[in-house]
Amino acid sequence: MGIIKAIKLTYDYIKRDEEGNPDGVKRAVDHVDIDIEAGEFVAVLGHNGSGKSTLAKHMNALLLPTEGTIFIGEKDTSDEDNLWDVRKTAGMVFQNPDNQIIGTVVEEDVGFGPENIGVPTEEIWKRVDESLKAVGMTAYRYHSPNKLSGGQKQRVAIAGVMAMRPKCIVLDEPTAMLDPNGRKEVLRTVRELNRKEHITVVLITHYMEEVIEADRVFVMDDGRIVMEGTPQEVFGRTQEMKDYRLDVPQVTELSWELKQDGLPLSDGILTIDQFVDEIMELYNGGNGRGDAGAVEAPGMETAQR
């Protein structure tokens, strides 16, 4: 069993009328099965309303399943006795950095979590040091959080989660409110945590460029997981991605379009290098293989006869 495992996970939001009586049900997550191994970098891609945030909230028991089960670190979240273990295993980072910061000084904010669970003072400072270092914010430890940029604030929020020493971090659209520089900063931080600290990362996003470096991508639509695979496999199914009105990188889209036009290109080209190599091989087709050479050859023979 992986660190996060959901079996037929289903969640219904209950709509209520003005008097608070139940008035219809909206199924936000619909029989989702996932199994995420410790140390993986997993991305969940989908539109607003696709159920990806609802799924994320199950990963540290902010929501409990209506049907089905989700295990975090092999603990069933529906069992109340497991609540603290679950939240210690999986930390969450949300969309709006301003809603997540409570300290008046960066280092106090980062120390807030461990202090709340009764970590000894010395240990708190050690964790604060390490967490700030991990997100590259040590230089700002005595700054006021409200003077930081959006990307820096998100990194402080991530440090706050890191100070809890989770095995897994779930980030729910952490870059949606940031500018391109802030987005890059946060993504770089998340990737480093995954690679250097071996933290399991679940990144919820609707930006396709953020999932390209993930180990595995899940695409959600209408509460279900509709596609799953490596970024190359998922983006390679370009038509499906377009049908879900999700973006693919321009290089993938261009390769796919050219493939429709009959050029023999690979599926799911994600890098400019690969694309340029394949096109140049077609163009210079004559030397060795490639169909341009093959087309010419019979013509040559005819001419010789």
């Binding site: 889209e253 261009l254 036009d261 096109i279 010419e296």
Partner: peptide, 16 residues
């Protein structure tokens, strides 16, 4: 992307 597609197709076809 559309411009690139047309230009690349043209380049490859002229080559052939």
């Amino acid at each position: 992307v559309e411009e690139a597609r047309r230009a690349i197709l043209e380049g490859i076809r002229n080559r052939k």
